[in-house]
Design a protein around this nucleic acid. Structure first.
Lengths: 144, 144
DNA sequence: ATATAACTTCAAGTGTACTTTAAGTCAACA
DNA sequence: TGTTGACTTAAAGTACACTTGAAGTTATAT
């Protein structure tokens, strides 16, 4: 009965699988975010489970966590379930910060949309050609 | 009949008004994004209208535009209405890119939320203590 | 057998967006 | 009148997240 064998990825193949470059993976490793396995000859290899881990890290990164915050998270994780409260508190803080940014970004998008519409209406002659953008925002009730 | 006089801001007061620092305003000026007025003695002053302009720039910046894209926009603006099509195309492209990022960021938030909930349920003993995060995501139908 | 492609480490370089420093000028208040 | 704080320019420095280069080793395909 053969041991269930997991697919082993070279750094190049793994990089393709997670959408990063090999140098970036080495950089993340230097920063303590990943710890790949090694062949006897010194070459790295990665397994299926490492893909989920990196993708999860990229999700956290995408919510605004810096490399050093990720490092803190990873350090706590390595210390076991005892650090779950710390990890939870960190992620809750990240979420709070994220939501603040998220709200701001929605206002940015609204102004961008308004400006695009203003230009489009100006081009189409729908809006009074001389109505300023400020007056236009005012008319829409989109202050600031 | 006196000329309507507009409030004049020093760079420091203006910085406070728009939420930037004086050095950042000088930097933006170097980059061609702002063109403040000058007193005879060489000191800059800004007016009410400049506040709207900077705030608008910050909205665009907040949608992902780089300084150099803003510079291109500003350059076109200075050339008059003839460049409205270019400006419109640029902003539409910015919007497209923004919407792609926005969708990605929503997935990141979902995973962050899921992880927070997973930890909370684990701490509260609601979830089977041994259910992996991957299995948890699976159960919720939140793939990847 | 040999070429070439991918891997290794370590250090230096890059891009973006500021921030800080240095050296000096000017304005406002006690 | 002096001192404090804000202004001026130009250049150098910083933080972050990679990216690139150099010099060498190993694996794979012909």
């Amino acid at each position: 009965m053969p041991t269930a064998t997991t697919k082993q990825y070279t750094i190049g193949d793994f990089a393709r699988a997670v959408g990063l470059t090999a140098p970036t993976l080495r950089y993340y490793e230097d920063e303590g975010l990943i710890e790949p396995h090694r062949h006897r000859n010194g070459r790295r290899y990665y397994e299926e489970a490492d893909i989920n881990w990196v993708k999860f890290l990229l999700h956290l990164k995408g919510t605004g966590m810096s490399i050093s915050e990720l490092k803190q998270y990873v350090t706590w994780r390595a210390q076991g379930d005892i650090t779950i409260p710390q990890r939870l508190a960190l992620l809750q803080q990240v979420k709070q910060d994220f939501l603040v940014q998220y709200a701001e970004v929605q206002r940015h998008l609204q102004i961008l949309n308004d400006k695009i519409n203003w230009y489009e209406e100006k081009e189409a002659g729908v809006t009074d050609a001389d109505e300023s953008f400020a007056a236009y925002l005012d008319r829409l009730g989109h202050q600031e």
